[in-house]
Nucleic acid binder design. Structure first.
Lengths: 332, 332
DNA sequence: TTGTACGCGTTATCAG
DNA sequence: CTGATAACGCGTACAA
């Protein structure tokens, strides 16, 4: 059974509990001979160390809690996956929860996760309820926020700037001569990253003295076909649209496929820009101009930052900008 | 600080530790009046229950451990996400790890996860090392395997049959008159699901007395463009190929896009079938014929099975076949 | 190098 | 309905 305790191992090896513990934890402080006996006893009785008890005693769980909006979107999965790799190589495990873009869900999940006494916390979101922020502050553990480059993180932030990225994409379109530029994003009220992409779009227009036209701005749920739908709505409503900036590759690809179905030339009929540079962006016909976001690096660096902090190092920059890159392809 | 203990709450509320615990756990066994005082004290001091200590004392963690190959593929993410929802509604949390299709990694992760004493385990894989199986058996907790319909699960299995699905897709192609049918999958040695899809393909050929031609079978890494590459390799090597069965939509879409680039008609030049019915399958041009797999349902049902078992119910069928469905579209 | 004694913060048991 | 007390299994002083 899995009910073998450390004491059983100790008895079998003819040593005390502590020696077993030491063998497992810092084996250099134990004689080679006893070490072997202990290890033998461990495999002999099939001992599996109880990390719950260990955590209680040592006041360290070696667990990182992570909260993401969803796992159905590969972008979040990519970051988490990268972080999980880093953590595992350092003996940490991942407690993962999804909150579907709900601030209230996030708050309640933070509260219960904190009960598990994670050594650190990873949040793929930068807006939180006041209560959530307070809980995190009081917990006194390293926290890394991810997904947007905010000025005042709870503790640390590792990201790219959605504002700058969208602004830069819009300026690019303007530089290509497009003037009537539409913008499609998720619901800005519940997705602060898309809200900031919208702000970037607005800022670019403003700086170039292009009037903001609400008729050119749409909010859609996450799915390919809503990109197609958005494009049709926009062209129907405002036939003189010259370009569309989609705040996700998902919609941009959906729109591109709709154009393909209707045999519309892109960018002849309308130019299209995506966001994210997912793999399909460079496979689709025509290839998609988009903003490359460093999803994987975000996870890796975030994990590393947490580890540095847990190893007692004072983390120098609390705000890490991983940047973005406009990838120009055939759709513009 | 987050260092408030139950005793601090008790003192503040003028009751004993036990009463606080009871209020939190089974509030119906406590007077309405004391209950309110306790709850007030809890918010007053900002108490967050220590679930680590609770787990040690009660010998139940309310944690489900899940091991998946990767989170970068939305298919695995979709199942996990669905399960996480079910679990969370019942007060369970998810300990998640990725193993990148490595059996050795899986074994070592199972071993350390078991140390956290999860109440149950979810594995998105059906092949394991003997040691891994032994560990799981000895742990004496509910285990659900997912991803293929095997005959002898460690404990329970919730899935669809990859063998039958691929066989059925191949038979469909034969029924449409295609005779020279190619097959593209992941590396069969490290992916038992794709191995069984290949077996299904072989079985369909055999039953229809079509000789098996190794030149028509390819293994590729997971990425859109390897679908394009595979298609070109196959057509180059064996120009008379009439149809290709891809063991993932990813490659099928990649191949379709390559055809689009070269202005080849599909199914005129070659018929294409995918696997999975991801959202893009019905958006791509031409729409992709594919096998629909119930990823979300797999996660939901697997989670429910584990919960049923943890609630003491004897789970009737240990093997749950959620089926698949061939979706005929324009690519064949 | 190894062992003894105690504490970690909760739940379970049994009285009152 | 409430309270005292003993586990839970392992770390961490400190002592040997």
């Amino acid at each position: 059974m899995g009910q073998v305790r450390m004491e059983d191992v100790a008895r079998r090896a003819g040593v005390s509990k502590v020696t077993v513990s030491r063998t497992l934890h810092c084996s250099e402080k134990v004689t080679e001979k006893t070490r072997r006996r202990v290890l033998q006893a461990i495999t002999a009785v099939g001992y599996v160390k109880n990390l719950v008890a260990g955590s209680l005693a040592s006041n360290r769980t070696n667990v990182i809690a992570a909260i993401v909006p969803t796992l159905t979107n590969a972008a979040y999965g990519t970051s988490v996956h990268a972080m999980a790799e880093v953590l595992r190589q350092n003996g940490f495990h991942l407690l993962l929860g999804t909150v579907d873009f709900s601030l209230a869900e996030e708050e309640s999940l933070i509260a219960t996760f904190l009960g598990r006494r994670p050594d650190a916390m990873y949040l793929h979101a930068c807006r939180h309820t006041p209560a959530a922020r307070r809980l995190l502050r009081n917990a006194g553990i390293p926290v890394v926020e991810v997904g947007d480059l905010i000025r005042h993180p709870i503790d640390m932030v590792v990201s790219y700037s959605n504002f700058e990225a969208a602004k830069s994409a819009t300026i690019y379109l303007l530089s290509k001569g497009y003037r009537r530029i539409a913008f499609v994003s998720a619901f800005k009220r519940e997705n602060e990253r898309h809200f900031n992409r919208w702000r970037g779009y607005c800022a670019a227009l403003r700086e170039n003295e292009i009037p903001y036209d609400p008729a050119l701005v749409l909010e859609e749920p996450f799915a390919f076909h809503f990109g197609a739908e958005a494009l049709l709505t926009l062209l129907n409503r405002t036939p003189d649209i010259q370009a569309v900036l989609f705040a996700s590759d998902l919609w941009a690809v959906g729109a591109l496929l709709e154009c393909s179905r209707r045999r519309w030339s892109v960018p002849g009929r309308v130019a299209i820009v995506g966001f994210g540079d997912q793999e399909i962006a460079r496979e689709i016909v025509p290839q998609l101009t988009t903003v490359r976001l460093p999803f994987e690096e975000v996870g890796r660096v975030a994990g590393q930052k947490l580890l540095d902090r847990l190893h007692g190092q004072s983390v120098k920059p609390k705000i890490v900008d991983l940047g973005f890159k406009l990838i120009e392809r055939a759709s513009t």
